[in-house]
């Protein structure tokens, strides 16, 4: 009988909570959830990126050290997007990893071969005023360790994935450089690497403690980017706010020597590039 009385109190407590919440809603009828479009504007300095074929020695960009290069292909993962407002409102884009492609959420692959992939449309955002965005570049441990995944995380469907050191390539760019040290390689089965190309693949999501006295080389190249908007935006049903973020490949490749660094395919080699990602992603503007 005691437990019945406890149950009754719990029941009444929950019921009264429910009533309180209902009253609050009646006082201030809330707007319905809204949307936000996030546009990643890929740039090389102040210019847009004009993709060139592998082997195309038309160089439309020369860096500060006089190296002429172009870009043929790029891709990066954006995940774990969070929005915040000055009044404490917060939106967390839910993450889900599963084999069922239609149920995978929160992971986005911006890839140069897929037009429109640079636009991420979030919905179901709690109405309010927002002025900050946070996101992860890459797929961190929580995503990798869920196992096989569909959609943009499916290696047979365009995901950039390392099999030997299993995990996703968080940020990758490939192209041609006038002084690249890359020689021609025939890999067989129709696969080849052309002379004068370069490929920078930034991956690696694990932390392994180095031995005493040794530099940590097995690095976690996952980076979280946090950007403040220059003005707040209102998100609610009926509005179409947008946030523009520049992705400046000039910052990623600043200081590279293509004659020596043209094939980056290991976490330790990618670390210097991962450290630059915080400069690569820059807030541009928002509008309602």
């Amino acid at each position: 009988m005691k437990s019945t009385i406890k149950f009754l109190f719990a029941f009444l407590a929950i019921a009264s909570l429910g009533l309180t919440a209902c009253n609050k809603d009646d006082d201030a009828p809330a707007k319905d959830p809204g949307t936000l479009s996030i546009l990643f504007d890929n740039k090389l300095g102040d210019k847009g990126i004009s993709l060139k074929d592998f082997g195309d020695k038309t160089f439309d960009y020369t860096d500060a050290n006089g190296q002429a290069f172009n870009i043929s292909l790029f891709a990066y993962y954006i995940s774990a997007i969070e929005l915040e407002g000055p009044g404490g409102v917060k939106h967390i884009d839910p993450l889900k990893v599963t084999a069922n492609a239609s149920e995978v959420t929160g992971y986005y692959h911006v890839i140069s071969t897929t037009p429109g992939s640079n636009v991420i449309n979030l919905s179901g955002i709690e109405p309010g005023t927002y002025n900050k965005i946070r996101f992860t570049v890459g797929v961190d441990e929580s995503g990798v360790q869920e196992g096989a995944a569909g959609g943009v995380l499916d290696p047979a469907n365009g995901a950039w994935f390392w099999n030997w050191n299993a995990g996703y390539i968080g940020f990758g760019v490939e192209g041609n450089a006038s002084n690249s040290g890359q020689e021609y390689v025939d890999w067989g089965n129709g696969f080849e690497t052309l002379e004068g190309t370069y490929a920078i693949h930034v991956g690696g999501w694990k932390d392994v403690e180095p031995q005493p006295g040794e530099d940590p080389k097995f690095v976690n190249n996952i980076k979280v980017i946090e950007l403040d908007f220059d003005s707040s935006i209102k998100i609610e049903d009926g509005l179409s706010p947008q946030a523009h973020i520049n992705v400046n490949f000039e910052e990623l490749l600043k200081g590279i020597d293509f004659s020596a660094t043209y094939a980056v395919h290991r976490p330790d080699l990618g670390k210097p590039f991962a450290e630059k990602l915080v400069e690569v992603f820059e807030f541009d503007h928002v509008h309602q």
Binding site: V144, Q145, E146, G147, A148, N163, N165, A166, G167
Partner: peptide, 10 residues
């Protein structure tokens, strides 16, 4: 090098 059984066959 592989940290999840699902990825072993790849």
């Amino acid at each position: 090098g592989v940290t999840h059984l699902d990825f072993v066959p790849i």
